[in-house]
């Protein structure tokens, strides 16, 4: 079932990307999405019926608004640190614990962390995310865990799990 869903999604994606409804184009798209589905289907979400639940899309929209706002803030933050003559940086790698369980949710969380102010995910080992932070604001693990993951974790939990 998840192979078929991935096939349909990638075919729609292909048709939007090329934006022509001619026969050769559809044939090439079918072959390409077939290959994609065959190779990458096993990484796709296991329970595809979750894609049909409307409340997940609502949370996705809320999440996107929060995320874009954080992303713009991140850019001004980094631009400020770069342009400031003294360069106010205090970098460090911190360990952050996550409560998310599925692989896809963790990937999304790691990507969101990478786009938020001054943080890049270095690695995930077990339940712990290692995050490089351009300006370490606090020494207390609870405080910085809340600062880094707290904003996104609840939305991602609603979207995926």
């Amino acid at each position: 079932m998840k192979y078929i869903t991935l096939f349909i999604l990638s075919l729609v994606f292909w048709l939007l990307l090329t934006f022509k409804l001619t026969l050769p184009n559809i044939i090439v798209g079918t072959v390409a999405s077939g290959i994609c589905a065959l190779f990458f289907g096993r990484f796709f979400i296991t329970n595809v019926y979750k894609l049909l639940q409307p409340q997940r899309y609502f949370w996705l929209l809320v999440y996107l608004v929060v995320f874009i706002w954080e992303c713009i803030k991140a850019n001004f933050d980094v631009a400020y640190r770069v342009l400031h003559p003294a360069m106010p940086i205090k970098p460090g790698i911190v360990k952050v614990k996550t409560t998310l369980n599925s692989e896809l949710a963790r990937t999304l969380l790691a990507n969101s962390i990478t786009m938020t102010p001054g943080t890049i995910t270095v690695d995930i080992i077990g339940d712990n995310l290692f995050v490089h932070w351009i300006y370490v604001r606090s020494d207390n693990p609870d405080v910085y865990t809340r600062m880094i993951t707290g904003k996104f974790e609840k939305y991602i939990k609603n979207i995926i799990e």
Partner: peptide
């Protein structure tokens, strides 16, 4: 984002030095 993660992970394992202003490195022990 995936490229940044791959590069930073690769750089750490290759042994790129952290800057001397770095205050914390939890990753080293793990």
């Amino acid at each position: 984002t995936v490229a940044a993660h791959a590069l930073i992970h690769g750089a750490y394992h290759f042994g790129a030095k952290l800057d001397k202003r770095t205050v914390k490195d939890d990753y080293k022990d793990s």
